[in-house]
Amino acid sequence: MAAKTYDRQNPAFYALLVALVVMAVGPIVMMLTTSLKLNVDIMSDSSSLLFMPTLRNYETALCDFLWYEADHITFCDKTFGRALVNSLISALVSTVLTLVMGCMAAYALVRFRFMGRDTVSLSTLAMRMVPPAVLLVPVFGIWTFQFGIDGTRAGIILVYVAMNLPFVIWILQSFIVQVPIQLEEAARMDGAGPFQVFFLVVLPLIKPGLAAAAIFTFRVAWNEFLLANALADRNSRTVPVTIVNSITEFDIDWGVIMATGMLLAVPPIIFTFVASRQIITGMTAGAVKG
C-alpha cells in the first residue's frame, strides 16, 4: 500500500490544535505538577513552573506501603492505602464478574433469539438512564436491612455488577452478532458442546469487544462515589470516598490530595493510552451504528 498522504493546513489551524490540546490536558498536567510540589511552593505567589519536584506527597499518601522510612512522616495515616486496596479489589472483581455474566447473557440473546433485539436495547437504554442517586435510597435500605451486606466489599461489588451489566450486554451483543454462525456449526459438528463452543470459539473472536466492555466497567466501578459512600464502612471505603472526606476538612492539604487524585486518575489514563481505539468503538457503537 502506498504511504498515506496528508493535506497541508495553514498555521492558524495548527495554533488552534495546540490550544485545544493545552485546554484538554492542561488541568491534568496541573494536577500532576501540584502533586509533585511542597506546600510552600503551592502557596507561594511566584510563577509555578520553577520548583523542585518531590515525591513527598505520594510518600505521605502511600505511607503504609513504603519499604523505607521517610523522615518527613511523623504519623502514618493508613486511610488512603487501605482505600486503594479496597478500590482495586472491588473494581477488578466486579469487572471480571460483569464480563463473564454479560458475555454469557449477550451470547444467549443473540444466538438463541428468544427475545427481540429491540427489547434488549430498550431495556439497556432504560437501565442506562437510571442515575446512581436514584439507587441510593433503596440500595441502602435493602443492603442494610434485608441482605445484611452493608459495609462489605461484596455489597459494593454487587451494585457495580448490576449497574454495569446492561451496558456490557448491549456492547457485547453488537460484537457477537458479527461472529459467523458457520464457525460455531463447524465446531458443533466436531463434537463440541454449547459451553465449549462459547468459550473456545466465540470468546477468542470478540476480544476487542471484551476489551472495550472491560475498560468501561472498570472505569465505572473505579470512579464511582455515591453508592460506595452510602454502603462502605471504615474498612471498605474506596478511594473516591476518602478523597471527598478529606476535602470537607477545614484545612486542605493540596499537595497530598492532588497526589491521591493523581493515583486515582492513573489507571484510566493508562487505559486511554493503551486502548483508545477500543474506547472510541465502545463510545460510538451506541449512537452511530444505532
Partner: peptide, 17 residues
C-alpha cells in the same frame, strides 16, 4: 486519545482539579 482523557478520569478528580 488526548481528547477522551477528561471523560475517562473520575468525576471526583475532575472536581478536585
Amino acid at each position: 486519545t488526548l481528547f477522551i482523557l477528561p471523560m475517562m478520569i473520575a468525576p471526583i478528580v475532575v472536581g478536585l482539579m
